[in-house]
Nucleic acid binder design. Structure first.
Lengths: 261, 261
DNA sequence: CGCCGGTTTGAGTCCATTCAAGAGGAGTGG
DNA sequence: CCACTCCTCTTGAATGGACTCAAACCGGCG
């Protein structure tokens, strides 16, 4: 149970963070899991697309939309969420550079949740049919994308379990661990030190807590020495990682991190 | 908001319930959403596979397994769930005849949650490579299967929102609505009258409630006249459906039910 | 300097939990 | 056919974790 300390991920050479040409980050990510030939990579990079900048807080997609494109997040962060009757909001996922915002819509017509930018972001709009053709002509890419879908689904189910069956402190620690690994893998932060692009209110909506209670919970974790916070930067001392993993009842299995060789 | 009363689904001619040859129910379901040629259908039906009976309560898959097959539920019901540290259990999905139990494993090596039989069930074991070949050779099937994956993911996210942001009564009503529609679509029950294959303890674990509180909640729904219960059979009077939908803050959008013509 | 979004803190309340005991019901074996 | 057992459902009383509703604080930025 648990995962090894920092070395496994920390030692992986990672793509530099920052902005990149539109589809490149996607290519890098897909490649990191399964091999993709040069020709396939070229096909991917030459997908038709247009880019668009989104301001922090703006809606990128809304429930009920019928987009003609798939939206790929090229830089920045976004989050998807659903609104429930009484005005409540549940964040269902956080997307980072290289993630699709609505990969579902390459097959499904209607968007089933809202997506907003967490930070100023750049999205590439790829026509659905173009993506369709690409996937059919290049099975390796289709396979890699599908794999992505499956991992995302696994993360969703873990969120369900996290919200449903863990108390506030455990739940929060768990999500902090997840972010540490995902940001590290994406080359957007360090496992031991990263900037959380969410306000406490948004984080609370991801954890199904109230902002007030999340605040107390974060402070409790800090008081216990498991994390250090300055602004929105989360620091996890190397020697604290194992404790945070334990406090968060965390295991990285659900992230399906394959050894990349 | 909400969905129309019974006629839309109730009028759809449905496949008879009961047992069917192994892959047939899958074929029927895929076909109901997107057209599949006769040749493709034949390829699907002639997939190599072996069948196995599972007793009620038995494990079909366990977290950490590395199965060589994909498991297709041919008859009966199953549920997938994750175990959290302190012994808690979160049910993350309920599968019915025609559903894959671990479609993820056609691409991912490791199973990320446990699957157990809710009732005596028959599963077909299909070699991963065979499924792989099928999908690559017959894009229409791959597409239909992928679509399935995406819809399942949407359901998962709705569960997250349901558990995270709705109170016990609303949450329970919501899930009862979902089951009504899903069972109806699968031809395994009526929207207005179906048998719930879950004990209250299991249902509680799906809703992230305690059995005691779920029991009180069900009774409250019954007292309010929204449902009638006898044993595990749930009845929703035609004139009550709209009320249940309202009480459950339910909208069928996330199920991506396409008009089938 | 003053605004403003975000964070922090407090006190009181409530929804759901815990823990326990009892009732019901279906199946099994004598 | 009855008695027994086990599993599931039901109910009660006390507890507690997270919520609500405010107000105060803080820091960055115009």
């Amino acid at each position: 149970m648990g995962i090894e300390p920092a070395q496994r991920l920390g030692s992986t050479p990672k793509p530099e963070s920052g902005r990149k040409p539109p589809l490149e980050r996607l290519a890098i990510r897909l490649q990191s899991r399964s091999p993709i030939s040069g020709e396939e990579r070229d096909a991917l990079l030459s997908l038709p697309h247009s880019s668009r900048w989104i301001a922090r807080g703006d809606y990128i997609l809304r429930e009920g939309d019928r987009p003609k494109h798939c939206y790929l997040l090229n830089s920045g962060f976004a989050y998807s969420h659903r609104i429930v009757g009484r005005g409540g909001r549940q964040v269902t996922g956080v997307q980072m550079s290289g993630d699709f915002l609505n990969l579902q819509n390459w097959l499904l017509d209607v968007v089933d949740e809202n997506v907003r930018a967490l930070t100023k972001s750049e999205v590439a709009l790829i026509p659905r049919e173009a993506l369709l053709d690409l996937v059919f002509d290049h099975p390796a890419i289709g396979r890699a994308l599908w794999e992505d879908t499956l991992i995302e689904a696994s993360i969703n189910r873990e969120w369900t379990a996290n919200i449903g069956r863990r108390d506030a402190k455990t739940r929060t620690a768990h999500l902090l661990c997840e972010f540490a690994l995902r940001l590290d893998i994406a080359g957007l932060g360090e496992q031991s030190h990263y900037e959380l692009p969410l306000t406490q209110e948004q984080l609370a909506d991801a954890l199904a807590l109230t902002p007030a209670h999340l605040n107390r919970t974060l402070r409790a974790l800090a008081a216990q020495g498991l994390i250090t916070r300055t602004n929105r930067v989360i620091r996890i001392g190397i020697e604290d990682w194992d404790n945070l993993v334990e406090a968060g009842d965390f295991s990285s299995r659900y992230l399906h991190i394959e050894a990349v060789e």
